[in-house]
Design a protein around this nucleic acid. Structure first.
Length: 827
RNA sequence: GCGGAUAUGGCGGAACUGGCAGACGCGCAGGAUUUAGGUUCCUGUGGGAGACCGUGCAGGUUCGAUUCCUGUUAUCCGCACCA
């Protein structure tokens, strides 16, 4: 081995060798236990950032380790390569998005290879390629045939900057998730996927530990909240002088006797008929216009004072016969429930505020029973549980019982039913953009919307388009694209010009990896069945709802279609923490970006990987430290010098030995203990930081040992070999180089993970703690393996114990063999 | 407002089932090597002169609590007029 650790030469050398020997390519092998390891594939934005480096370093340790452990590890990579940045770059520079995209992919592939990641590149999947989007279109058609895709006109979220519609999930605080522009509403006819049909399954599986026990609790909670299932009752109120029914959804049907008004969302389709001809009509129209002008942010602000407008109409309470007024109010959301709400001011804070503003009755119907609430002088709504009052035959009943009973009674009388409601909406997947998968649908005047024939797929992206940025899909500017024939009647028809939300592409890529080069189907079932589900998925928390819910939904549909045998695609999920610099997220505006390219150039990929894995556990935030990186680099140099010295002194010597001195036994103990700790830290806990500390401790111990007078070279060699092996998942290049330096051929990736010897971990004597009243007073060395009685006797008879308890009354003695003796004394 | 998480030296973090708090690293201090700096190697490094005190704060359970329980504060994250 050379004296100097030259990472530049070493890393290039081994990357080349790994590639030439094609060691990361895997195929199905029934004799081996499979492991599907997946990291979220990147968007090809240009260059890797530190978040990528962290994500892929974590994955690579797991992959390389499990491979050495004998698993058949599928570890694929690809690029999520449709999307807006490519199109914007195209508009700006006058190039085609494909040019920008493929150049970025080439650059990022190069960087990923420079990191020494153990990917099976033969399975690379890029979503912008025809061979991929062809199957995306095919899958969309299967959704359509199953009744899960439909086109509908609705008020939709529109981003004026991205010039396209957005799904609910892509609107954050009323702004576009990508560009932060304020989102407006537009009425458009768009394609939707019926994810709401799967709401219950998506929700219930979250609590099924057999399917999703390996997910972080907080991600599951976020998805639950997003799906937002609530149980309640739908009740129909008669509208005076109209055939329309005022149907409300409520979780608190027990409070129905306290209803003193009704509220309807101003944009509700019923409003027109309700207000027409009323003397309040003009005022209502003014209110509706004002509501329209508000952004979602203003409208949903909880600090805003309640507004509303009386419609002139009334409903009849089916239980009391009382007539109560109907108001328009923008605090009612059109998209949730029925868009109509019953107002119970005594027991709902929003209704309370509304009633105060408009001087409406506040009728208490649930009593807390402790006399603490003065219903004549309420300052806020009483929303907790209690006993029914003012509620006819339900009086005296706990209100929770009344909910069930009233629901049952309503069902019998045919005026209501117990039901469920969700916050989740159907997934709007149309985008008025070019750089995405064309929606393979054709509109025929006679036959309506029809899917393109499967043999005609892919519906290719046209190249003769103009990027105008006008809000219509650029595809519409193609001279030929829209010309089609109806797949049913053969008449002239028109093609859909919108493309799919790119979250569609990333909702099944993990299935494509199992059979990435298939040109007959998206993937063969037997390949999917061998590899799925994903045993470990690793990625950022920012995908907790969007990608991770869409992908679950997609996989459930593929499961229902019989294409795969696994319902939940991701068994275990690790959400890695962010990489920070000086306590803040790395960003261009803060100017605190550390580029992976620079770090790898200066210290090498092995150092970059080692630092990023050592500085924090994977799920926590990681604060970048230049000093820390230098420390990792120094450590690798320290290992290098140590192994080089041992390699030279033990050339041709086997790693065989007999333990003679106490120092031998001590080093053998540390060695075996390190193997045990590193194995457990990687395998069971994903605590790479502590695994690396354990390796560091072994290195420190080897340094102490090697300069002793009586040194056992066979033992040192064994230490060096195991050290190099344990280091290899973290720092694969330097490890392979040192392995070669120790006289071995081939790759550590193809070697076996070291085992530890339980016998070497048994010590002859142990240091124990002597406590008096729970406080540590002294330490003593006793023979190991004593039973409790012997142990206690020995400890109690020791000089130290005698001295410490002299003149005191011994109340109790607690002895934990091998660990401690605690003497409880008085006086 | 609701839900979730976190809190340990100067810093990043360890302590796995309740049993020596601060592993490992960074930083700092001292020493050796070096013409010097850097590198490397060694030693020390929670506070306190000390008995002792120390894991956000206040209690509790226990022989014994960073770990379990109750309350509380702060910070971060998610959702938020969801009827």
């Amino acid at each position: 081995m050379k004296e100097q650790y030259d990472f530049r030469v070493i890393e290039e050398k081994w990357q080349k060798r790994w590639e030439e020997a094609d060691i990361f390519h895997v195929t199905e092998d029934k004799d081996k236990e499979k492991f599907y390891l997946l990291e979220m594939f990147p968007y090809p934005s240009g260059k890797l950032h530190m978040g990528h480096v962290r994500n892929y370093s974590i994955g690579d340790v797991v992959g390389r380790y499990l491979n050495m452990k004998g698993f058949n590890v599928l570890h694929p990579i690809g690029f999520d390569s449709f999307g807006l940045p490519a199109e914007n770059a195209a508009i700006k520079h006058g190039t085609h998005p494909a040019v920008w995209t493929s150049a970025n992919i080439a650059e990022m592939e190069k960087q990923l290879r420079q990191m020494g990641l153990s990917y099976d590149w033969d399975r690379e999947a890029c979503t912008y390629k025809e061979e991929y989007y062809k199957w995306m279109q095919w899958i969309f058609i299967q959704f359509y045939k199953k009744g899960l895709a439909y086109k509908k006109e609705n008020p939709v979220n529109w981003c004026p900057s991205c010039q396209t519609v957005l799904a609910n999930e892509q609107v954050v605080d009323g702004c576009c998730e990508r560009c932060k522009s304020v989102v407006t509403k537009k009425n458009l006819s768009q394609w939707y996927l019926k994810i709401t049909d799967y709401a219950d399954r998506l929700l219930d599986n979250l609590d099924d530990d057999a399917k999703m026990g390996g997910w972080p609790e907080r991600v599951k909670v976020m998805q639950k909240n997003w799906i937002g299932r609530s149980y309640g009752t739908e009740v129909d109120f008669k509208i005076v002088g109209s055939d329309l029914k005022f149907r409300v959804f409520t979780t608190r049907v027990d409070t129905i006797f306290g209803t003193s008004f009704m509220v309807i969302a101003p944009e509700h389709p019923y409003v027109e008929e309700l207000i027409k001809g009323q003397k309040e009509e003009a005022a209502c129209r003014e209110y509706i216009e004002a509501a329209k002008r508000q952004s979602d942010i203003d409208r949903t602000s909880t600090t805003k004072e309640k507004t509303g407008q009386f419609t002139g109409r009334y409903v009849i309470n089916p239980l009391t016969g009382a007539q109560v007024p109907i108001f328009l109010a923008d605090y009612v959301l059109l998209g949730y429930g029925t868009g109509m709400v019953m107002g119970v001011p005594a027991h709902d804070q929003r209704d309370f505020e509304f009633a105060r503003k408009f001087n409406l009755d506040i009728i208490p119907v649930v009593d807390p029973g402790n006399g603490e609430i003065d219903f004549d002088n309420l300052t806020e709504a009483f929303e907790a549980q209690g006993t029914m009052i003012n509620s006819g035959k339900y009086n005296g009943m706990p209100n929770e019982e009344a909910i069930a009973l009233i629901g049952k009674d309503f069902e019998e009388q045919g005026i209501g039913k117990r039901t469920k409601n969700y916050k989740l909406r159907d997934w709007l997947i149309s985008r008025q953009r070019y750089w995405g998968t064309p929606i393979p649908m054709i509109y025929c005047e006679d036959c309506g919307w029809q899917p393109e024939k499967e043999e005609n797929l892919p519906v290719k992206l046209p190249t003769d388009v103009v990027f105008t940025g006008t809000g219509e899909s650029p595809i519409a500017t193609s001279k030929t694209f829209q010309n089609a024939v109806c797949p049913i009647c053969g008449k002239k028809a028109t093609r859909e010009v919108d493309t799919m939300d790119t979250f569609m592409d990333s909702s099944w890529y993990f299935q494509r990896y199992t059979d990435a080069r298939n040109d007959q189907a998206p993937f063969a079932k037997e390949k999917s069945d061998y590899w799925m589900g994903v045993d470990q998925y690793i990625g950022g928390i920012e995908h907790a709802i969007l990608h991770l819910m869409y992908a679950r939904f997609f996989n459930m549909v593929l499961y229902d279609l019989g294409m795969t045998s696994v319902e939940e695609p991701f068994k275990n999920l690790l959400t890695q923490g962010m990489v920070l610099k000086d306590g803040a997220k790395m960003s261009k505006s803060l100017g605190n970006i550390v580029s992976p390219e620079e770090i790898i150039g200066k210290f090498g990929a092995d150092t970059a990987r080692l630092f990023i894995l050592f500085a924090a556990p994977p799920e926590k935030e990681l604060d970048w430290s230049d000093k820390g990186v230098e420390g990792s680099y120094k450590f690798l140099n320290r290992v290098w010098r140590l192994v080089a010295e041992i390699a030279e002194q033990t050339e041709g010597m086997p790693a065989k030995y007999i333990l003679e001195t106490e120092d031998d036994k001590q080093l053998a103990y540390v060695l075996n203990n390190t193997v045990k700790r590193v194995t457990q830290d990687i395998h069971k806990r994903f605590n790479f930081n502590t695994a690396i500390s354990a390796i560091m401790e072994l290195v420190n111990e080897m340094y102490r040992y090697k300069d002793l007078e009586d040194v056992n070279m066979g033992l040192l060699r064994d230490c060096a070999e195991k050290l190099v092996k344990m280091l290899s998942p973290f720092c694969p290049h330097i490890a392979d180089e040192m392995w070669e330096g120790l006289g071995y051929e081939g790759f550590l990736f193809k070697s076996e993970w070291p085992e530890y010897d339980e016998k070497a971990l048994v010590k002859e004597s142990v240091e124990i703690v002597l406590q008096i009243n729970g406080k540590v007073k002294d330490k003593m060395v006793v023979p190991a393996g004593l039973d409790k009685a012997e142990f206690e006797k020995l400890a109690m008879e020791s000089e130290k114990a005698q001295a410490l308890t002299a003149g005191k009354q011994i109340v109790k003695v607690i002895a934990v063999p091998g660990k401690l003796v605690n003497i409880v004394v008085r006086g």
